[in-house]
Amino acid sequence: MPIKRTRRSGTVAAALLLGAAATSGCGLLGAAAEGDGGGGGAGDHPFTVAFGGDVHFEGMISTRLQSAPDTVFGPIAAEFRKADLAMVNLETAITEGGTPAPKDYTFRAPPAAFQALRTAGLDVVTMANNHGMDYGEAGLQDSLAASGRAGFPVVGIGRNAAEAYRPWTTTVKGTKIAVIGATQVLDDNLIESWTATDAKAGVASAKNAPRLVQAVQRARKEAHVVIVNLHWGQERNSCATPAQRQLAGQLADAGADAIVGSHAHVLQAGGYLKGKYVHYGLGNFVFYNGSGPTAQSGVLTLTFDPKVKDTRVTKASWAPAVVTDGVPQPLAGASAQQARTQWEGLRNCADVKAGPAA
């Protein structure tokens, strides 16, 4: 059964049967999913979910991970710890083996990465991205096994498509939540070998929009709140692309309450679309490459009110930061206010609004 653990702001159901799932073939969720059906349970109290962008453990971060994994995220971790639920995009394979993929950049990290994530206050990660299989299927299997041993939930990858598209579910303050991960970004020469199918391990591909829409529709029937974390957009383009906009609309129509993502290495716009909350790009987070626009970072915290029927995200707050030596350092005072103003201005080249009725 799921094990409850208390966070500062609430109680979260942590799926710690991943280890058994990894060896039994029953999927990443296994018995940890709470299937109460019919749109899931709805609590009476608002709750918060915090999001960060791209995370890997390369370069100077690798040294820090080896010597002091509990300090890797630095002071920005306070934003995750005070939220009821928190997640990032884990843009690396968790393996010490495998064969590097034929691409320019390959990332991997040891299983200690899960300790660093948990200590920082994170509850779940997506590994559906263009680095999740950097060390091949063997590296993917290692990632799944490490996730299982650590009891740390991962979405967006699996031993087959059913697992890769399957949501992680948890209950926060009485409300059942489903979290799905998928990627719209894959190297052209690797799309076929990396995409999970009914018979092959891989990542959940958002290039197959109907399959992702179906996953959201199914999750909508089982949970009261549905969150989709996507890897999408164009590198160094702060404007939402047509492909992003189209997919966001499809997922909003399918029943997603919040759609957040990363990949561009720069911040993109966040706001309301069709009454749902969409954040197109959270930028780099714990990431070795950051200067100028690629160093602009932060934590997005969404407040959900399960009693609101059409627009369950009632508030979005942005805690700005700047990546320094691979770690996002929180901004304060005038610098923070200026960064928030710039973040608000990103909506000028996106289809999202400041409020649900705007």
Rank of each mutant, 00 (worst) to 15 (best):
V213A: 06
A215W: 00
V216P: 09
Q217G: 11
Q217E: 15
Q217C: 00
Q217A: 14
R218C: 00
R218L: 04
R218P: 00
A219T: 01
A219K: 04
R220Y: 08
K221R: 10
E222K: 04
A223C: 13
A223H: 09
V226E: 13
V226L: 12
I227L: 15
N229D: 07
N229R: 07
H231P: 00
H231T: 07
W232P: 01
G233N: 10
Q234D: 12
Q234S: 15
Q234E: 14
E235W: 08
E235P: 06
E235G: 13
R236W: 07
R236A: 14
N237I: 05
S238M: 04
S238G: 12
C239D: 00
C239L: 02
A240V: 04
A240H: 01
A240C: 04
A240F: 00
T241H: 04
P242G: 06
P242A: 09
P242I: 00
A243Y: 01
A243P: 01
R245Q: 07
R245L: 03
Q246N: 13
L247N: 10
A248L: 09
A248N: 08
A248W: 02
A248H: 10
Q250P: 04
L251D: 03
A252M: 05
D253W: 02
D253H: 11
D253M: 07
A254L: 11
G255I: 03
G255F: 12
A256H: 09
A256R: 09
A256Y: 09
D257I: 02
D257S: 02
D257A: 06
D257H: 11
A258W: 00
A258D: 10
V260F: 03
V260L: 15
G261L: 13
G261Q: 10
G261H: 05
S262W: 07
H263K: 14
H263T: 13
A264M: 12
A264T: 07
H265C: 09
V266W: 02
Q268F: 05
A269K: 02
A269F: 02
G271D: 05
G271C: 06
G271M: 07
G271V: 03
G271S: 09
Y272F: 09
Y272I: 03
K274I: 01
K274S: 13
G275E: 11
K276H: 05
K276G: 08
K276Y: 01
K276D: 08
Y277V: 11
V278W: 07
V278M: 13
V278A: 14
V278R: 05
H279R: 12
Y280T: 07
G281V: 05
G281N: 13
G283T: 08
G283H: 12
G283L: 12
N284I: 09
F285G: 03
V286R: 11
Y288D: 12
G290E: 12
G290Y: 09
